[in-house]
Structures are given as structure tokens and as C-alpha cells.
């Protein structure tokens, strides 16, 4: 195998080559590694090495995909699209601190329900605390002061409301599951109204979500949480039945609060498309 004359290689690379000569060279390229190296070496004159580098990076990204975070893998495994999974996984609430808070709340409830306690005290404690888990999640799902990339997100075309929905649904699913486990553990010992915390959880989360269309999410979370604790202690102290809040009329009231919150949130959904600053 003979090397290709340098002027031919130069003309080929520069695109100034005669058609017959080009065909001859290209046919030679198929059989001569040396010719390929020659053309490759001459190519640096017309092709920016940075361009080849960029293409290599693009290849490298495809063949070496970054490892998906755990939350994303779980959401994808459940059959949701990968993009949605990524949006959910970026929820600030989906962090270790939130999970720790959930575990803490449940353990606290269980400890309070220790075997030597009498009466409905432990039930009450669990029923009051469990609905606060999703409220905390909602307050940490989206918005100024919570999401460091909030302004970037707002300035993007994706509807803020849709993003909020995706994140809130994720948060609610996780917190309902955790609360459910706690309820089952407790029920074995106490004979709890296992599902009595679900409607309060829904009502409070939606109230919190609706409030975030006016105030910062953390403020909304504190306001709803505080109001709930106030109402819960007042009712349990005054009413003859400690658990009055969690029986028929109370449940209906909390359902109505939740529905009202949902309606307000939908009506004010454009608030999620602006950054609240200052």
C-alpha cells in the first residue's frame, strides 16, 4: 500500500478535488488504513477539533447514560413517562429530610400509643399528626423559598399548574402510603378507625395548595398546620367525644374544605406561572 500524495489529500479535504480523483481516493480509503489516517490528519485543517470533541461527548452521553435517581426509577417503573418522572423527582419535598419527617411523625404516633396508655389518646395523636405529613409535602413541593430553581422554572413555557399537579400528586401518593403503613401498625394494637385520617389529609393539603396561590408555600404550610392543631385541640378538649372531629360531620367538613381548596387552586392556577418576589 502506497501513501496518497499529500496534495491530493489536501485538495480532497479542502473540497477542491477533481471528481475522478475523488472517486479514486475514496475507493482507496476502503482498503487503506494509511490513507484514512492521512485524510484524518489533514482534516484538522478544516474541522475544528472542538467540533469532533462535542460530537464525542454527545456519543458518550448516549452510551453512558447518567444513573437515574431512585425516585425517578421508581416512578418510571410504575409506568409513568421518564420526563414526568424527572419532574416529580425534582420536587424539593422528595428529599431525605421529608422522608425523615414522615418516619418521625409515625414513630412519634406509635410511641405515644404505647401499651400503658389508656383510652383514645394515641388514636387522637395519630389522627391529628398524620394529615400534616402531606401538608408538609405540599408546602415543600413548589415555589419561591422552596425550590432554588423556581424563577427558572417559572420563566419556562411548561405550565406551572401542571408542574404543581405532578409534584403534588407524587407527594400525596408517598405520604398516603406512609401514613397508611403507620395506620395499619397502630390498628393492630388499638382498633383504630384506620382511614379516618385520609379525608383530613386531603382537606388540609388542598387548603395548603390553595393558600400557596397567595402566599409563599412555607407560610401556607405553617398557617394550615397551625389552624389544624388549634381546631383539633379545641374540639378534643371541648367535645364529649375526643374524636368528634373524625366522625361523620367532621369528615364531611374536611371533605368540603378539600373540595373548596381544589376549586380555588384551579381557578387561580395562573398564579403558579409568576414568581412572587420581594
Amino acid at each position: 500500500m502506497n501513501p496518497v500524495p499529500e496534495p491530493v489529500v489536501g485538495a480532497y479535504v479542502a473540497g477542491r478535488i477533481d471528481a475522478a480523483e475523488a472517486v479514486r481516493l475514496e475507493q482507496y480509503l476502503a482498503v487503506s488504513g494509511e490513507a484514512r489516517l492521512q485524510v484524518g490528519a489533514a482534516a484538522t485543517a478544516v474541522i475544528d477539533p472542538a467540533r469532533l470533541e462535542a460530537t464525542w461527548l454527545a456519543i458518550d452521553v448516549v452510551i453512558d447514560p447518567p444513573r437515574r435517581p431512585l425516585v425517578e426509577r421508581v416512578v418510571t417503573a410504575l409506568g409513568f413517562p421518564a420526563d414526568l418522572a424527572r419532574l416529580m423527582a425534582a420536587t424539593p419535598a422528595m428529599r431525605r429530610s421529608w422522608y425523615l419527617a414522615i418516619v418521625g411523625a409515625i414513630l412519634f404516633g406509635l410511641a405515644a400509643a404505647g401499651p400503658n396508655r389508656q383510652g383514645g389518646g394515641s388514636e387522637l395523636l395519630f389522627l391529628v399528626l398524620a394529615p400534616l405529613i402531606p401538608v408538609m409535602g405540599v408546602a415543600l413541593a413548589y415555589g419561591p423559598g422552596v425550590d432554588p430553581a423556581h424563577e427558572v422554572t417559572v420563566a419556562a413555557p411548561l405550565s406551572g399548574f401542571r408542574l404543581v399537579l405532578a409534584r403534588v400528586v407524587g407527594v400525596l401518593v408517598v405520604s398516603m402510603a406512609c401514613g397508611g403503613i403507620g395506620a395499619l401498625l397502630l390498628e393492630r394494637r388499638e382498633g383504630l378507625m384506620a382511614a379516618a385520617w385520609l379525608l383530613p389529609a386531603f382537606g388540609l393539603s388542598m387548603a395548603c395548595l390553595a393558600l400557596t396561590t397567595w402566599v409563599r408555600p412555607k407560610t401556607a404550610g405553617w398557617a394550615v398546620g397551625g389552624a389544624w392543631l388549634l381546631v383539633a385541640t379545641t374540639v378534643s378538649n371541648r367535645a364529649a367525644d375526643q374524636l368528634a372531629l373524625f366522625r361523620g360531620p367532621g369528615q364531611v367538613a374536611l371533605l368540603l374544605v378539600g373540595l373548596a381548596g381544589l376549586v380555588v387552586t384551579v381557578a387561580r392556577r395562573e398564579a403558579f406561572d409568576l414568581a412572587r418576589v420581594g
Binding site: V61, P66, P69, D83, R86, L87, A90, A149, V152, T153, A156, P157, L158, L163
Partner: peptide, 12 residues
């Protein structure tokens, strides 16, 4: 990568 990719998703 994930951070910029996330921005790419919200930017559709």
C-alpha cells in the same frame, strides 16, 4: 447533566 436536562423538560 440532570439539572440542565430538567430545565430542558420544563422548557419543553
Amino acid at each position: 447533566f440532570d439539572v440542565v436536562d430538567y430545565c430542558g423538560i420544563v422548557k419543553e
